[in-house]
Amino acid sequence: MVNRLVAEHVAFEYSNGVAALAGASLELARGELVAVIGPNGSGKSTFLRCLAGLLVPKSGTVVVDGEEVVALPPRERACRLAVVPQFLPRLPDVRVQDFVLGGRYAHLGRWRSAKPHDRAVVRAALSSCDAGDVESRLMSELSGGQRQRVLVARAIAQEAGVLLVDEPTNSLDPEHQLAVFRSIAELVAGGRSALVVTHDLNLASQFASRAIVMQAGRTITEGPVDRVLTREVLEPVYGPHLFFGRFANGRPIVVPWADAR
């Protein structure tokens, strides 16, 4: 299996001198959905931004399809890596279809004009995320769940081989959490790769094939979910208040448990 995305010993320091990453590595293969888990402040989101080329690592390398991410021109990079942010710092005052069309930017020609093909890709992306009905609404009119699905739709329209997804299910109800993960899983089944940073260990358990655990800016363990989502691995990271169980299909369940020990 060819690795699409390879990161080796990535370190990053914010300008105030805080070291957010101190050696994070991973490999992501074609057709793989991998979850990155770890406690708050363990560097997951920073790692994702380094992988996406939005931050330049202090040391270490990130290689996508054989080329270093930091050396790629921005449009070329966007054709290979799409980011689904946790939220937008500012909601653009545009219609959903125009926002999703933004995902086509890297594919547009010299004069940056959208072709009928681009519009078709946008419509298909929206309907695959079950958001076709909101395409002419303003971004500011959407509910949290709709907004999250539109962000995923834009990443789909970007047609990049690798999706980097940051906390996609925060503030979503269970049905919408599943919907978002399903649309990511569908893309992966179609041959793309996805890396999902998440706090939701149980969704990771159901949808990811592997999980990577981060702690204090390092990737400390990785492996198939049923071997990572265990008391031996998670207790040193998250502490003792965890309850472990199994779904009907045998996949692990991990939930916070106030009465542990």
Partner: peptide, 25 residues
């Protein structure tokens, strides 16, 4: 204008967001 207009539109979601869809900010 032709080299900045679409890019300025994409800046509306923030700089990092524009960068992630391929804008050379």
């Amino acid at each position: 204008i032709p080299f900045t207009a679409v890019e300025l539109d994409l800046l509306k979601g923030g700089e990092a967001d524009a960068q992630s869809v391929g804008v050379d900010v």
